[in-house]
């Protein structure tokens, strides 16, 4: 008995965590998927009715706004963060004496809560006393910078704050990538008289493809889950102009009392993440197996 126990101990130790993951991740996803196929409103119902909630979802102008915003937000946030991160990494890679200090400064926003970031930017961007007022005070009376309260511009205010928060992190990823490129090849290229910018565009950047992928995955994942920053900056407003899928889901679940809509919108978010993460995880795990 003691021997059996000892030999099975590894499995016994792992079991609680594994069971917890099975229930609280996969079981819960199953529950949400199930409920998304019912007519649940304030309370969950369990009779399957087909895709009625998804039809309601795609007919909803508010969801339409949320998805459009996700495209705008995701595209610009990921794109600009990657470009900015890469540029900063390359600039920092030129034997900068104060590199450590600069890196610390660029990266600290990542340690902040999105709610803190949102609070700070909400104050900076508020048209009454923020940047707009300040620049007008310098004599540019006609200067307007009202992104935060302008329904057509508010999503860009969120993008601005989101980039501020995570571009430093992308910089750190790329910097680590630049440092891992084989220095022999670079030196050989320099000996051959190839200009530095060519070394970057022809040798270093192409060899960092996996880092680009990682950065993209992380940013895409952050973009889809974005919730706190929107709540803190605009609360989804003006109106629902800055709703994202995450805020739509939350509004349906906790203020509108529409469980069916909450579940179906959560499932769509899940599927988007799934489409991005699964191929990535698959390739990662396959590589580790090879080692």
């Amino acid at each position: 008995m003691a021997k059996w126990f000892e030999s099975h101990l590894p499995k016994i130790v792992l079991a609680p965590s594994f069971i917890a993951v099975l229930i609280f991740v996969y079981g819960f996803i199953g529950w949400t998927a199930w409920v998304s196929l019912t007519r649940s409103r304030l309370l969950p119902k369990y009779e399957i009715e087909g895709f009625i909630q998804y039809e309601r979802l795609f007919d909803s102008p508010r969801w339409d706004t949320a998805i459009t915003n996700l495209y705008i937000f995701g595209g610009l946030y990921i794109g600009i963060s990657m470009v900015l991160g890469l540029i900063l990494a390359i600039l920092l890679d030129q034997n900068i004496r104060t590199e450590g200090a600069i890196r610390t400064i660029y990266l600290y926003p990542m340690a902040l809560s999105m709610i803190v970031t949102g609070t700070a930017w909400k104050w900076i961007l508020n048209p009454g006393l923020g940047v707009q007022n300040m620049v007008q005070g310098w004599g540019f009376e006609n200067f307007t910078f009202d992104w935060l309260v302008n329904p057509d511009r508010a999503i860009y205010a969120i993008i601005l704050a989101a980039i501020w928060q995570s571009s430093g992190f992308v910089m750190a990823l790329f910097l680590a990538g630049l440092r891992s490129v084989d220095t022999e090849i670079i030196r050989a290229a320099q000996v051959d008289g190839i200009p530095t910018w060519r070394v970057y565009t022809a040798i270093i950047i192409p060899s960092m493809a996996p880092i680009f992928l990682s950065a993209f995955i992380v940013l895409a994942h952050l973009a889809i889950k974005s919730f706190d920053l929107v709540i803190a900056l605009t609360g989804g407003g003006p109106g629902y102009a800055t709703d994202l899928p995450a805020t739509y889901m939350y509004a349906m679940a906790f203020s509108r009392g529409d469980i069916g809509q909450a579940a179906s919108s959560a499932m769509i978010m899940m599927l988007v993440v799934f489409a991005i993460i699964v191929p990535y995880l698959y390739s990662e795990l396959r590589v580790t197996k090879h080692d």
């Binding site: 609280f24 991740v25 819960f28 949400t32 995450a246 889901m249 499932m267 899940m270």
Partner: peptide, 29 residues
Amino acid sequence: WRFKGANIIFALMLFGCFIPFQVVLLPMA
């Protein structure tokens, strides 16, 4: 202590890191 299935368990746990938590909010509540 690699036993049979340990890699699958790991993959399943790893995937749990990446789900959008919206998908578990309702049942968890």
